[in-house]
Design a protein around this nucleic acid. Structure first.
Lengths: 153, 153
DNA sequence: ATAATCCCCACCGAATCCATAGGAAATATC
DNA sequence: GATATTTCCTATGGATTCGGTGGGGATTAT
């Protein structure tokens, strides 16, 4: 249950692109690298993934760079993470709904499915625009507002 | 965002122990290994983790084995996973509430905290007894009942 | 004594993670 | 057209984690 460095970099890079959306000019990889302190060559491969997922567009050359391919209020954090890391949640290499259990563990698959659903409930409802403005969706905001959410367990 | 083989084995092993709770006799590692098809030596190290976390007790010798140290309705899936894998969720090696962001990513920490909270909402409310009986907590059951939860996205 | 079982540490191969290197292709400017 | 700039793409590499195994010691009941 961890967010990989790659996924986290990807979200931060996407947020930089989201912030630059509407500026008219493309944003260079080097500028993103500096702004978010992401290793330059690693970022390059991440931006390639994002482009292949049709989340961003790019242009080469002297005035080249990257920009968001969609409305930033239409791109969710889940979209960005899936673009670089694949499926959000899996159990021992398989999708949660595909694992089968015997005996005492018979009903365990339901737990994994519920877990994935609750992860989706956060990541698929929160858009780049939401994070940029600091105005998260209401259910997500409620979780953030609860001091218990910030405490280690 | 994946459930490790070790964590999944641990939960299944715990469920076997939960099923055997009240039988009076300890359950041997070898029996758990057979029932859930978990590699014997790997299971051994898992049971050791569970014992060190005070979730199970053990006895050596001819009539030895393992049994739950607590009421199975008091042990959550989160307890079991933490015993073998450490913290439920972390971002680039740190706890979600500890990462700091600059510029466009300023509000990103809130998303990770909400994500962890939603994971906890499932794993900390679901107990071994719940899974054993197939009667998950109401909010979790609602997620499981939604067909959308079972569909790949 | 003996047999069974858990305890514990060391190790190992493979996969994954986090990058880095180096050049080819495209684009704008002079 | 030459040049500078930037993205595109493949290959590679070190470190760490993951999944699993081996072997011997400690404890317990018979």
């Amino acid at each position: 249950m961890k967010i990989s460095a790659k996924a986290e970099y990807a979200v931060r890079a996407a947020l930089e692109l989201a912030a630059a959306a509407g500026s008219g000019a493309p944003l260079k990889a080097e500028a993103i690298s500096r702004a978010q302190e992401i290793p330059a060559k690693f970022l390059e491969s991440i931006l390639l993934d994002l482009r292949r997922a049709d989340l961003v567009r790019s242009q080469r050359g002297a005035v080249g760079g990257y920009w968001m391919a969609k409305e930033i209020s239409e791109v969710t954090i889940a979209d960005v993470i899936r673009a670089v890391d694949g499926p959000l949640a899996y159990v021992r290499g398989e999708r949660p709904e595909q694992v089968e259990y015997a005996g005492a563990a018979e009903h365990l698959a339901g737990v994994w499915v519920a877990l994935r659903a609750s992860i989706r409930a956060v990541l698929e409802t929160t858009t780049l625009a939401d994070v940029l403005e600091g105005s998260l969706p209401d259910p997500v905001r409620m979780l953030v507002a609860d001091p218990e959410s910030w405490a280690p367990h």
